[in-house]
């Protein structure tokens, strides 16, 4: 099996199927991350597509010294933050009407809302089984207790495979801040999930 870096090289050489393989390979992890961050399926799907458009457009910026997944998730994270901040006050939960509304003038419209107000906790998605539903209930409840910054660090570390140092670079904050947020997140999760353990 080709490595991610080899697929990137093929794509740079004009092989579009190589990009398809990369999308397929990272599909579920990336979607799950965006779904938890967006809080709704429609928003996550938009972010997913926008992420890959940016990956294709900026593939020249990827350096093979770093893991492709780390670069991919930093692109996805920035895409998601842009999208979440564009949401209007009345469109925090994206539905058909508000999805159209955020692009009404054909350009992204920042809503002026801070991060703390735009990152929602994940809303329940389609339940595939009782166990999955119960797991979702427990983890959503625990994640909802985190601050947006703590949730951001915890989800990035869980899904992206980025190190805390790489996360610090992506977020543009010192590593100590990232570790402090992760520690606080872990402490709150421990507390909230105490009954589940």
């Amino acid at each position: 099996m080709l490595s991610d870096a080899e697929l990137v090289r093929s794509f740079r050489g004009g092989d579009e199927a190589a990009l398809g393989e990369l999308i397929e390979r990272h599909r579920n992890g990336l979607y799950a991350y965006l779904r938890r961050l967006a809080g709704d399926a429609a928003g996550a799907e938009d972010m997913f597509q926008d992420t890959w458009v940016k990956v294709a457009r900026n593939i020249g910026a990827y350096r093979e010294e770093s893991k492709f997944s780390a670069w991919l998730f930093s692109v996805a994270h920035n895409t998601a933050m842009d999208a979440l901040r564009r949401r209007r006050p009345d469109s925090v939960s994206l539905d058909a009407a508000s999805a159209g509304d955020t692009m009404r003038h054909g350009v992204p419209v920042p809503s002026g809302r801070p991060l703390s107000e735009v990152i929602g906790s994940a809303e329940p998605g389609p339940e595939s089984s009782y166990e999955a539903a119960e797991s979702r209930r427990a983890i959503d409840g625990a994640l909802a207790a985190l601050s947006p910054e703590q949730r951001e660090v915890f989800l990035l570390r869980h899904y992206s495979g980025m190190s805390f140092r790489e996360i610090a670079e992506t977020l543009g904050v010192p590593i100590g801040t990232v570790l402090a947020r992760a520690s606080r997140a872990a402490a709150k999760l421990r507390e909230k999930l105490a009954g589940e353990i």
């Binding site: 999308i23 990336l30 979607y31 597509q49 890959w52 998605g125 797991s135 869980h158």
Partner: peptide
Amino acid sequence: ALLAASDPAAPAGLAAAALERAV
């Protein structure tokens, strides 16, 4: 473990749509 047990799978067709838009 709870995240892994409740991760939503990407909807069918999303990867193909993303590839088309990307290229």
